[in-house]
Structure formats: C-alpha cells, structure tokens
Amino acid sequence: MESQMGLAHFWGQGDLVTHTTAVILALLSLASWSVIVSKLMSLWRASRLQERALSGFWNADSLPEALEGLRRDDVSGVFSGLALTGAHAAQAHQQNAARGIGAGVNASEFVTRAMRSHIVNTQARNERGLTFLASVGSTAPFIGLFGTVWGIYHALVSLSGATQVVLDKVAGPVGEALIMTAAGLFVAIPAVLAYNAFTRANRLVAVQLDGFAHDLHAYLTTGVRVGGNANLVSLDAARGNRQG
C-alpha cells in the first residue's frame, strides 16, 4: 500500500475539482515566473547602462548630442523619454509663448507639467505585472488549501463504505492531499518575494528619475545644471549663437 502512495497516486485518485485546482496553480506559477524573469532582465539591462547613460548626457557638448546619446544608451527608455519630453516641452513653449498652449504659462510650469505627466506614465509602466504578482502571492495559498480540503473530503468519502478503517488508510490520502497546500505555497512565496523586490527597485528608480527631472528642469528653464558640472552649452548661449 505504501508503494502506491505519492503524487502520481494522488493525481490518479483525484477528480475533476482536484485536477482543475492543480492546473490553476501550475498556470499561476508559470505566469508569475514569466513576469519575474521578464522584469529581472529589464532591471538588469537598465541598471547596467544607466550610470554611463546619465554621465554621457551631462558631459555632452550640446543638447541634441546629449539626447541622442541618452536615447542610445538608456535601453529602458525611462530617462531618455523624460529628457525628450522635457526638451520638446521647452521647445514648444518657446515657439508658442505668446499664443496657443503657451499663452499665459511660464516655461518652468509648462516643462514641469510635461515632465510630471511622463514620470507618472513611466511609474505606471514600471509597476505593470506587480498587481498580478501580489494577487498570486495572496490567493495561491488559499487555492492550495482548497485543493487540500477537497482532497481530504474526496478521500474520506471513498472510505465511507468500508466496514473497518485503519489509520494507514486515512493517513495516506490525507498526506497526499496536503501536497496541494505545499503547491500553493510553492507558487505564492516566489511571487511575494519578487513583488517586494520589484517594489523596492521601482522606488529606487523613481528617486533617481525624480533627481534627474529636477536637474533637467533647471537646465531647460535656466540653462544651468544644479548640483554638478556639465559640458552642455547653456540654452541662453545656444540661442545667442543661433541669433548671431
């Protein structure tokens, strides 16, 4: 009897509900690991080139060159998208300062609105998939527990017609049914750990993006980078050169 106990025996003795629960857990595990691997690769690529990309941006000789270098080096598009948004907003305000969307709005406020909107969209994009991981982490243990309860119920029903029930006939099915609880934890624990890790990583990115946004805003509105040395030609100087 003992040789027949195990996962294969539990699957063979299970019914539609048990099989469906196991398939759901397997699909949740596969989907959560897909999200985990995808976000890990994205974070690794972004962190590997981020410092070089920002350094190249601030040490460029001109704004167009800085934007092109940042777009090339920032594979995540987080910082390059913000820089392009800010630069386009500053240019649009300069061209429409006396009419249209630029009328009555100073350059600082106009650039701030554009960059803030981009930051919000970027944060929403970075958080994509985290809700799914949180849902898996919170529901998978209960799905596994449901499978266990149903497995025990199914095992006890199968023994209800026996005239004599000994401990080994009950312990085997109950032990097999507990596999579902273990499966639920196996699915939930990586999802919870990944959710916490990615949430922290996103907070760090948000802080770095906010700092870059402040420096970029100061440069686009005043022509000076606050808090660092930059080779970028000031906007006022560049405008004077174009006029000359």
Rank of each mutant, 00 (worst) to 15 (best):
G172E: 02
E176M: 12
E176A: 14
A177I: 02
L178G: 05
L178K: 07
L178S: 05
I179M: 04
I179L: 06
I179V: 06
T181E: 06
T181N: 09
A182G: 15
A182Q: 13
A182H: 13
A183Y: 12
L185D: 06
F186M: 15
F186W: 05
F186N: 10
V187I: 14
A188N: 12
A188V: 11
I189A: 14
I189H: 13
P190A: 11
P190G: 08
A191H: 14
A191E: 15
A191G: 13
L193A: 10
A194Y: 04
A194M: 08
Y195K: 03
Y195I: 02
N196G: 03
N196A: 07
N196Q: 13
F198N: 06
T199R: 15
A201Q: 12
A201S: 12
N202K: 09
A206W: 05
V207A: 10
V207N: 04
V207R: 00
G211A: 02
G211Y: 01
G211F: 01
A213C: 11
A213N: 06
H214P: 00
H217V: 09
A218H: 10
A218K: 01
A218N: 13
Y219N: 03
L220F: 13
T222S: 15
T222G: 07
V224W: 00
V224P: 02
V224R: 09
R225W: 01
R225A: 02
V226I: 06
V226Y: 00
G227Q: 01
G227F: 00
N229F: 11
A230Q: 12
N231E: 12
L232T: 00
L232E: 00
L232A: 02
S234Y: 08
S234K: 11
L235F: 00
L235T: 06
L235D: 00
D236W: 07
A237P: 07
A237W: 11
